[in-house]
Write a protein that binds this DNA or RNA. Structure first.
Lengths: 176, 176
DNA sequence: TTATACTTTCAATAATTACTGAAAATTCAA
DNA sequence: TTGAATTTTCAGTAATTATTGAAAGTATAA
């Protein structure tokens, strides 16, 4: 085996390890394992990949590859582009980790935090005028939680549009 | 129906809505739906609840109630206590939202972020000395991601031990 | 002790979620 | 147009995850 081949294998092995563990991390945070793996694959790819390439690399079906790529594109984490002279669509990932994080935070805010806040506000309202110690303490807790989540929503809003250069100084302030 | 009954029903309905939607939110973030519901139930309870009370309220089996309560206790989100003169164990939830958030963040850091960082460091190391543009860019990305996650780990570390009074001033600074 | 109340475990089962693959739809060059 | 290339859909199936419930285990009062 040549030195170049060895190097290639080692690179492939390291990529594989990353793809696998990124998938596991994703599923711990409620993101479909395969989706996270497809994302990881594109994050490490040095050129845009076709659906067929993704299928082959991850050993998944066409349907699965297609829907994963569509969903990632829906999140804005990857974009499709058509190479001149080719029919197939090629996909490339956003690789700026600050942008990636901002996108994910922003989407989760929209999809989960905002709806949860609506429920919370309604529950808070429903318990507002009720009599009795039980009702009072329930209402108090809901109020605390709602306030806390509104703060979280605002922070996520900020992070969504943040840049590395903008956030880092504040992080340092927080960390000192 | 009396005014008191009406009030009780309305309180129960509001509680139910919260329990249900808290379960949904949890499962979106990779936390078992029932676990989140048990937690929500205890968060709104005005007194410690027994396993049987949880079973009855949520219409779940003894095994499920028991293991959910154990897991929540393992996270440190609830504690068991034995009322004098009673055999049954009663459970009560930590209700300070800042503490709750700190616990959850701390646990997820330990369980997911720290192990993910280990993988990341290993991948980074494996690609460090490899030749070729592909290897270089892969290594560069892994480096960025590792640095980003180390920052995240440190922030989670801070939040884990944070108090409302300590964090709020910094949040204001961030939000301004 | 011993009987009883209570808790835990875990094999079997149910419910949910993810994936496949082939057919249908779409796109595009000729 | 036509038809080959490509993408999308989705019914059927597989894999995973969650739940039940009864038996085994444990603790406690008498």
């Amino acid at each position: 085996m040549t030195a170049t081949q060895n190097s290639l294998n080692e690179l492939t092995a390291a990529k594989d390890e990353f793809v696998t563990s990124w998938g596991a991390l994703g599923s711990a945070w409620g993101i479909n394992r395969t989706l996270a793996q497809v994302h990881a694959l594109l994050l490490l790819a040095n050129e845009p990949l076709t659906t067929d390439a993704v299928m082959k690399e991850l050993k998944i079906s066409r349907g699965n590859a297609n829907s994963s790529l569509r969903e990632l594109a829906g999140w804005g984490l990857i974009r499709g582009l058509v190479k001149k002279g080719e029919r197939k669509e090629h996909f490339e990932a956003e690789k700026d980790i600050w942008k990636i994080f901002g996108i994910v935070i922003g989407e989760r805010k929209r999809r989960e935090v905002v709806p949860a806040l609506q429920v919370l506000r309604r529950c808070e309202e429903r318990t507002k005028a009720l009599k009795g110690d039980d009702a009072k303490s329930v209402h108090g807790f809901l109020q605390d939680l709602r306030q806390f989540m509104e703060m979280g929503e605002k922070i996520m809003q900020r992070v969504e549009h943040s840049q590395k250069g903008l956030v880092m100084p504040l992080v340092f302030k927080f960390m000192r």
